[in-house]
Amino acid sequence: MKKTMNPKSMTESGKIRTPFRLLLMVLLSALAAGLGYAVSTLSSQSPGSGEWVAANLETSGVSNPVTAVLLNFRSYDTLLEMGVLLVALLGVWSLGGIPEQRESSPGPVLDTLSRLLVPVLILVAGYLLWVGAHAPGGAFQAGSVLGAAGVLLLLAGWRLDARFAGLPLRITLTTGLGVFVVVGAVLMLVGRRLLEYPPSFAGALILLIEAAATLSIGMTLAALFLGSRPEAGPDR
């Protein structure tokens, strides 16, 4: 760390004087003790909502309870969460002008590794997406593995072709939220409540939403890693 050139920033944590620091420690110790007491006095036998989920699991279309909660019983959480991802990406893009550093070429190890790993990661993402219906896995895990594949590609110097950096990229980023909203709206049009799937189609609808969400989550995470908005335009 080159701290010497800016004398004001030399003391990274020395700004707060010792009496305040001691007072803070006392207050936070009290907070920790209070929180610990509250947690340790909770009843050790609380049914929670686990029984309710187990009783309604058959109507949800999947047999993994966590996926059932994420994409059926509390699917509005996931819907809004896709929105949060998009808003975060919008925020990063709106800051603009983060200088993208032109690194030197990735070197043989990273180059070969990325060529080997990226197909495997995509395969793992597909597997996690499919297996999420009845075992640990699902859209978020698959999406983050896809995002990791994207980060690896970006580290190896790969950039999205300018042809796809405009509208196609944005369509991919919004697919997850879009499919979610369309499914919810269609269900409302046919007389059900928002995202209240009919039990006979629930499995298929969940897989459709999850597939779109996986793609969008992966793309959004990779785009968040890149930081700046990919340049669109025919010439590069």
Binding site: G48, G50, A54, F73, V84, G138
Partner: peptide, 29 residues
Amino acid sequence: ARARGAAPDPVPHAMVITGIVVAVSATAL
């Protein structure tokens, strides 16, 4: 997971998975 012997409550698990993804996007921002 505090109910001994029973399967853990999946609702907090789902909330935490959502929370992890929100945390990483907020961190990026």
